[in-house]
Design a protein around this nucleic acid. Structure first.
Length: 263
DNA sequence: CGGACAACCTGGCGGC
DNA sequence: TGCCGCCAGGTTGTCC
């Protein structure tokens, strides 16, 4: 979102071309274009995993899911097919083009009167003041499921994905299979801090380009080079405990942890 | 509430 | 080189 801001804030959308209609979650491509053209981008923000465009009248939200990318290019000739995965092209008043590219077609774009229509049910932002140890602890106390699955539940806490769930649990030395209501106060405090630490680090390194993710300028992020446990199965735990990182399946997601350090 | 699983999709990789 | 199965950073809906 930070890498995109300079390229879109202040621009007016002048033309929309949709190449995969299902990318638009809220309306038909024709209505989407008619409603969007003429609106300016006032602000660009993030809520959870959604990128929020605050427009003249409406809000447009984008979820990149697994393979989505947003980037700005100088509008090329229509024949230029250097990216075969462009699903929506947004022409802007400065002559440049905002693109939503998404190989796997899971990503979605929402055009709504209020951003809250899309993000209203999300849990607290881990990096905001609304996320306190007290509220975290109170909300954990009523949950019986595995802690990792709860961290991935966006309505519980917003913005944590599979990589950073594994990283936060490793850093706070908690077994991902632990039931949420069995965590002690000290463990909850450690997890609270670990969530904030790993997310800040991920943002500082500008994303994890293990596979598809690229920054808006096309270059890879660096976060994948600074992970402690995700993707390190059968490699020694970095806590010098002489134990290999184990990979299991938990809630249909690959889960990496140290069976020695994480209890 | 929560667990299991399918669905949405395509591409990359390892194995044969 | 080709084909096959498996895996992938996410979310939603259904069934039990």
């Amino acid at each position: 979102m930070r890498g995109l801001r300079g390229g879109v804030v202040g621009q007016i959308f002048t033309r929309i071309d949709t190449y995969w209609p299902r990318t638009i979650a809220t309306e038909t491509p024709d209505k989407f274009s008619a409603q969007l053209v003429g609106q300016a981008v006032r602000r660009l923000d993030r809520r959870g995993k959604y990128i929020v465009f605050t427009l003249t009248r409406d809000s447009m939200l984008v979820h990149l899911k697994m393979t989505g990318r947003l980037y700005v290019v100088s509008a090329p000739a229509p024949s230029a097919k250097e990216d075969r995965w462009v699903r929506i092209a947004f022409q802007m008043s400065n002559g440049q083009e905002l693109r939503f590219s998404d190989a796997r077609k899971f990503g979605r774009v929402y055009l709504v009167a209020n951003a809250e229509d899309v993000v209203g049910k999300l849990g607290p932002e881990p990096l905001s003041r609304s996320f306190s140890v007290e509220t975290f602890q109170n909300r954990l106390a009523t949950r019986k499921g595995a802690i990792k699955q709860l961290l991935l539940n966006q309505n519980f806490v917003a913005g944590i994905g599979n990589i950073y769930a594994d990283e936060a649990l490793w850093l706070s030395r908690i077994d991902p299979r632990r039931k949420a209501d069995t965590l002690r106060q000290s463990e909850i405090a450690a997890l609270f801090e670990a969530i904030r630490t790993v997310l800040k680090k991920g943002i500082a390194f500008e994303g994890a380009s293990i596979n598809w993710y690229r920054k808006p300028d096309g270059s890879p992020g660096e976060s994948q080079n600074h992970l402690n446990v995700y993707g390190r199965e059968n490699q020694p735990c970095l806590n010098h405990c002489n134990t290999m990182i184990t990979k299991i399946w938990l809630g249909q997601r690959g889960t990496h942890f140290c069976p020695s350090c994480q209890k």
